[in-house]
Each structure stands twice: as structure tokens, then as C-alpha cells.
Design a protein around this nucleic acid. Structure first.
Lengths: 229, 229
DNA sequence: ATGGTCAAATTTGGATGCAACTGTTGACTC
DNA sequence: GAGTCAACAGTTGCATCCAAATTTGACCAT
């Protein structure tokens, strides 16, 4: 992660969230100048952002001079989710082969922290105290775990593909996850057991098992998320 | 495919092939200005090209102001090949679900043409006539088949990922394939039988079978290619 | 000789301007 | 009234320019 975020990066994220939230409607046409004025920057970084969004499939070039927000059907989102599952399996397979001892220890450390947080959340919930703050910390830890697994794969291109497959669903997924965890005590716990199992498979260098666990975990997570919506 | 290729596109392709051919050595540092002067264009399109190459993993940012050609170890190329196999399986899975009748007919039509070409090549070879021209036509047909299958998947993002996984190996792969086919009569034939089987699975809408066939075919093709090198 | 510090030169990110091309609208003809 | 062509507005692509930040090299002190 670059410490200094360029204007192009900001424009990329802002336009992406604008599309995700529906602020920019599907089919609406997007111009460099218009976006530049809206974001109060020059067209140069906007062009770069639009190029990246185009590669992500979030905007489409209908003609050489007309760019518009891609019409993302729900079916396409489901398709990308399926791609994500497959990629996660691949990542796990690579991680089983390439993870270093330090990285594996870091994974366990993250899960330890997550366990502590989970216990804390349950405690506070029993006492009727607010848990929002700790729940977000828990989600952050899960995110951190995912990133750490990705790092274990030692395959930047693959990790980038995984990120790309999540571009569509990420914004609303975190929100769903937060609500789901807040409702259901056992939701997070179930997932952690599979996380532990994944780390064990990684330690054993068992790429087939790691792939299987990662795929099942991803599928299960997506299914549970879909139920909750 | 844009009818008019922008300077940025040209710069992207030129730099990419320069890296592939070793003209730009691994670890060599790349600057916008230097590349711009070398290609006789302004730095603006070069910047865009470097951004895309960075996303492809062909160049690396070592610092905020230092960009150099990524050191691609053979292991990394093998890793990407493995990713490619997985992605091909995913593409086949999607194609089985989303392919239209017209697209399926087009697939068979391409294979028919390829069969004719293969017969022609064998004929000419028996008579001691040169086959280069027809062999390249055969490879073009195989490429066309691949593209057509990708189109069947109706998942542009996934197809882009597949393309990305091939960035490293594509230049030398075609050359290897050409040599291999020229040597071995049965090489192409074996692959076509699996291609026919793939189309059958796609017609049946059997996504599991399609995925399996595509994976086995990719693995087999890569293995055979590796032998030949 | 080695390590740290400082300054100059190089480099990138961003802004602005211009030319070429495209999409559109309106008028004119059949 | 429908189709076609031309003019116009708008947009993109590229070049040039500028400022901020970083890399690099030299110089000094230890």
C-alpha cells in the first residue's frame, strides 16, 4: 500500500464507490471532464482511474467517444463470486507451497487475536454492552487474515485477480457481514474453525487440502451471506 | 478491439514485447522519459502503458520513484501457467452454462476447418511439400477456438484474467507450439479430440464435465509443450 | 574506511492547451 | 415524410509545462 495516495488512486476509489452505491446509475455516461469537475481535479488522473475501472469491467466503452457505467446484472455479480471462490482455492494451493514459517506464525497470531475479540464480544453482548466497535475490529482481523493468506501465495498477479473479482461485491459485503455477525453468535465461530483448519493444511504443505478448505469456506461464507440478505 | 490503436496501446505492446524478448533485461530500470524518448512519443501515453504493465506484473515499483522490469523467475512462470489452467476450467464451466446455440455451432465450424487443415497438412507432408503456411493457419484456428470458447463464457472480467495469466508465456508459447506440431503428426490430433469432447460437454450444459475436460486439456497441452522445449 | 547528512539532479504526478475525431442535430433534398 | 449530408458542439488523446518529492552522489565527520 502506497503511503501517499495519488489523485488517480483517490479518483479510482471514489468513482468505484459511486458506482457501487448507485450514485452513478448503470448506463449513465461518464466523461473525463465531467468527472474531473465533479471531483475538483484535472482530467489527467481521472483518465487513469477510468482506464483501471474499464479493466475491472465497471465501465464500458460503447464507442471511441462514449464511456458509460457498465450494466452489472445480479447474475454477473454471482458469476464473479463464483470466480472468487475458484481463485481463493488457487491462492490456498499456492500458499501451501510457498508460505514461510514466519507467515504461518503470523496467521495463527491473527486468529488468536480474533478469538480474543470474539470472546470479548460475547462477553459484552451478555452484559448488554454495545459491541459495534469490537465487531468492526473483528472484521478487520478477518480482512487481515485474508490479506496474510494472499501474501503467503507469493503470487501478486493471482492476488490482483482475486481483488478484481471482489470489486463488485466488496462494498455491500462488509455491511452484510457486519449485520450477520451482530445477529448470530455462532456465525463467526464456525468460520474460525475452518480458518484454523486452513492454517493446519498450509503448515502441512498439503495444497490439495488447503484448496478444498478454502473453496468450501468461501462457498459457505457466500451462502451464509446470501441467506442473511 | 479498438479500430484505432492509441499511442498508449502501442507503447504497451512494444514495451511488453521488449521485455519478453529480453531487449529490456530483468531488473533494468525503466523511466517514463526514457521510454518516451525511445519510442519517440510524449511521456503521457508511456505512463498509461507502464500502469498497465504494472498491473500485469511485468514491471515493479521498488520505490515511489523507481520502476524496473520485474524479475520473472521460471518458477513464477510455472505458477502463472497453473493459474491459467484453473482459469480455463472456470471459463469452461461458465461457457457450459451461458453459451448460445449460435456460439456452439461456431465452435464446431472452427473445428471442422481445423480438421480440414490438419488433413491438408498431413497430405502435403506425405508429398514432401512445405507445410509452414498451413501450420500457422492451423494455429490461428486453435487460437480462434480458444477465443470463441472465452466468448461463450460471457464473463469479460474472467476472460481478462485468463489473458493476464498468459502475458508471460504467450510470446514463446506460440513458437514452441509451431515447432511441436511440425514434428509430431499426432500432436494436433489428440488435442482436437479433447476439443470435440469439450464442445459436446458445452452442448450438454454439463459444466462439471466441461471444467474437467478443459483442465485436463490445458495441463496436457502445457506438459507436452514443456517436453518439446 | 564507514556512516551520516545535505544538496543537486532526476523523476513522477498533475495541470493546461490544442488538434483530431466523433456523435448529434438540424437543414435540405428527393 | 423519410433519408442524407453537413455543420457544430463535445470529447478524447497527446504534448508541454510546472511543482513536489525522491534518488543519488558527494562531502564531511567520526
Amino acid at each position: 500500500m502506497p503511503v501517499t495516495e495519488t489523485l488517480a488512486d483517490q479518483a479510482y476509489r471514489q468513482i468505484r464507490t459511486a458506482i457501487a452505491t448507485g450514485e452513478l446509475a448503470s448506463g449513465e455516461k461518464v466523461t473525463e471532464r465531467g468527472m474531473a469537475e465533479r471531483l475538483a481535479i484535472s482530467p489527467t488522473p481521472v483518465r487513469e482511474a477510468l482506464r483501471r475501472l474499464e479493466l475491472d469491467g465497471l465501465i464500458e466503452r460503447i464507442g471511441p467517444r462514449t464511456v458509460l457505467v457498465a450494466a452489472i446484472r445480479d447474475a454477473a455479480i454471482d458469476d464473479l463470486a463464483e470466480v472468487e471462490v475458484g481463485l481463493r482455492g488457487l491462492v490456498a494451493r499456492f500458499a501451501a507451497r510457498h508460505a514461510s514459517a514466519d507467515q504461518l506464525d503470523a496467521l495463527d497470531e491473527i486468529l488468536d487475536r480474533a478469538d480474543d475479540l470474539l470472546i470479548l464480544v460475547k462477553e459484552r453482548r451478555r452484559q448488554g454492552q454495545p459491541t459495534d466497535r469490537h465487531l468492526t475490529a473483528l472484521l478487520d482481523a478477518m480482512q487481515e487474515f485474508n490479506d496474510a493468506v494472499n501474501a503467503c501465495a507469493h503470487n501478486p498477479v493471482l492476488v490482483r485477480m482475486l481483488e478484481q473479482s471482489r470489486v463488485f461485491s466488496r462494498p455491500r459485503r462488509r455491511e452484510l457481514l457486519l449485520r450477520r455477525v451482530a445477529q448470530d453468535d455462532t456465525f463467526g465461530l464456525e468460520r474460525y474453525t475452518s480458518h484454523r483448519a486452513l492454517v493446519r493444511a498450509l503448515r502441512a504443505g498439503d495444497s490439495a487440502a488447503a484448496e478444498r478448505i478454502a473453496i468450501e469456506d468461501s462457498q459457505g461464507g457466500l451462502a451464509a451471506l446470501r441467506e442473511g440478505s
